[in-house]
Design a protein around this nucleic acid. Structure first.
Lengths: 342, 342
DNA sequence: CACGGGAGTGGGAGCGCTCCCACCCGGTGG
DNA sequence: CCACCGGGTGGGAGCGCTCCCACTCCCGTG
């Protein structure tokens, strides 16, 4: 009693100090790994910590340091329905794995609408997290702009454009697309069409660019009527495929910028009596779970999503540790996974 | 200068009080919605808050109240590969939606191994969160035991057994299975087999039970050689299907306790030259994304996963608000989604 | 042998908030 | 007319930590 009106039974730094027969300062130094402590004192403190089961009070620490030891993973919901869902799961898994050895907390923030974006803005501005990971970035991304404006450590999955100033990580979209289309050409396809993602996203744009590059490298000219743009959804894939068949009945290969769109395309091809891969060969992108279950199973470009998550987390931690450091840009390799569709 | 050595430019409660010409106590009362404030004072304070853009410092509040205003969603990784992935995404979405209007933060914690479970234990014991949501519960679940022991507000998705003492939410597994099997019987199936999930999980057990009940209700006897146990994976589904075909070549219907296992079963049936649904009708469970892409598309029992997430969050908030309240148990309805496989 | 300085240490101040007690004041009842 | 009450209010104390300054040793140097 007296001055010590403790409400929770949890031991404090003070208690540890008393137990170890040292001052608060010394305990703090030990806990925070300062070298300026004698071996003797350190041992005594560590023993006391173990005996009492001391765990530092995060709030008290945050209050004085104004670090929060937590980072936010922000997922714009509107996009999350579009991009294949396993993508987010894999990102989360990677981020979490990388953070596991730290004592950083992972906050998950889904942003569904303008009101929630507003809330998020207040949230970030009041520095309730040390850093932010943002996925599903598109051109003119309001959230990315926000991150840039308030100068909080941040890492993007994807980018707004080729000149993205914020640190970001993404798969080699161009290279992956090139690989896919090259494979189609090597199989003997003469008229390779593509179903693109939204062209206001770099990922959509880049995969289209890869298609063009691969065609040119193969001596073919990328023709406009071999391109149909969709929105990463299955229905979008179906519509695009119908349009392509109408415009170019002679097509014999399709590169779809996502597995889900490829799945839609496969349905339409079947409806039209085209055999896959004999009449039309199809390659998707993502190597997601759907790729293994389509009929026929889908050849697809694998992107290392979990690895992306890990990398993002690592870059963010670096940036938090050294806020002045320069922005980074990491591109991860893709790989073509062969199945039956091409 | 002087006593006010502020480091961040953010306004404090003190600043608001000064601006509004009232005391700290009054500002605190307004911020926390106490009725014991005159309309005049409240107006002045609200104006000052708006002008200064005041946001309460969470750490300071936590330090004194020992509330953290955050809840943890705990996902045991070992299971997460097994249960269909979209499940977690949907749970997350539901939880997040329900929390969006609160100022509760959502912490995501993946637990991969014993070491991380240990860390989590320390984490929870030191009350760094106000409550916990736990998914993928199985019998003898160590994490569930932990939650029970440290008496922290908690809600489970699923349960350890029929006598689960903790508050929990789950779909009507028995009813869903009954619905599926009844459908198979009504279609004219005479020998309905089942591929179960792990029987050390209530969900595996309950879906098996539903199969039995429906058979009996239909006048048939559930025979042991019509049951094969798997682990919710595709490969498990394949093996189980092979075993069933060997034991009971006369089977003409299969109820699989998950879509992923059903997908594996479909492959094996095709390999064996059985047409689906003509020779063998198949029903899955989950109505996950794979169900739409199998060949043929899979009839499946839909469980309202997002709704489960919402419900879990709601129950948790109630429990945090009133820690003494009694445990709750919510069962959500399922629905049969008809496609081509049955 | 005095002195400067580095290593190690203790503890005051203060982070921004809530809690609670003391106080003020106008209305009511004896 | 005064004691009483209760709505409304201000501000001290204190949550548990880090930061930093002051202090004590004890070594090496001139």
């Amino acid at each position: 009693m007296g001055t010590n009106g403790r409400r929770t039974g949890r031991p404090t730094l003070e208690a540890v100090a008393q137990r170890a027969g040292v001052g608060r300062g010394t305990v703090s130094r030990v806990v925070n790994g300062s070298p300026r402590v004698s071996d003797q004192a350190r041992a005594a403190v560590q023993a006391a910590i173990a005996e009492l089961g001391y765990v530092p009070n995060r709030a008290a620490r945050t209050l004085v340091t104004s670090r929060t030891d937590s980072v936010a993973l922000v997922i714009p919901e509107s996009e999350s329905r579009l991009v294949a869902e396993p993508y987010f799961t894999a990102i989360i898994r990677g981020v979490s794995a990388e953070l596991a050895d730290t004592d950083m907390q992972l906050l998950l923030i889904l942003v569904r609408n303008a009101r929630e974006r507003e809330r998020l803005a207040g949230y970030l501005t009041s520095h309730r997290v040390d850093g932010v990971l943002l996925v599903a970035v598109h051109r003119d991304d309001r959230l990315a702009e926000l991150l840039e404006r308030i100068e909080i450590p941040a890492v993007l999955a994807g980018r707004r454009s080729g000149t993205e100033p914020l640190t970001h990580v993404h798969p080699d979209n161009v290279g992956g697309a090139v690989r896919a289309v090259r494979h189609l050409l090597e199989r003997g396809c003469r008229n390779v069409a593509t179903i693109t993602g939204p062209l206001d996203m770099d990922v959509g744009h880049a995969r289209l660019q890869g298609w063009s590059e691969a065609l040119r490298a193969g001596g073919a000219e990328p023709e406009d009527d071999l391109v149909a743009t969709a929105d990463f959804t299955e229905e979008g894939g179906r519509e695009a495929m119908r349009a392509l068949l109408e415009r170019r009945p002679d097509l014999d290969g399709v590169f779809a910028a996502s597995d889900v769109m490829a799945a839609g395309a496969l349905q339409v091809l079947r409806e039209h009596g085209r055999r896959v891969p004999e009449d039309v060969a199809v390659v998707g992108f993502d190597d997601s779970i759907v790729a293994r279950h389509t009929d026929p199973p889908l050849t697809s470009v694998r992107q290392p999503v979990e690895e992306m998550g890990r990398t993002m987390a690592r870059l963010l931690l670096e940036q938090i540790a050294e806020p002045g450091g320069e922005r980074r840009h990491v591109v991860l390799d893709t790989e073509l996974v062969l199945r039956d569709s091409a």
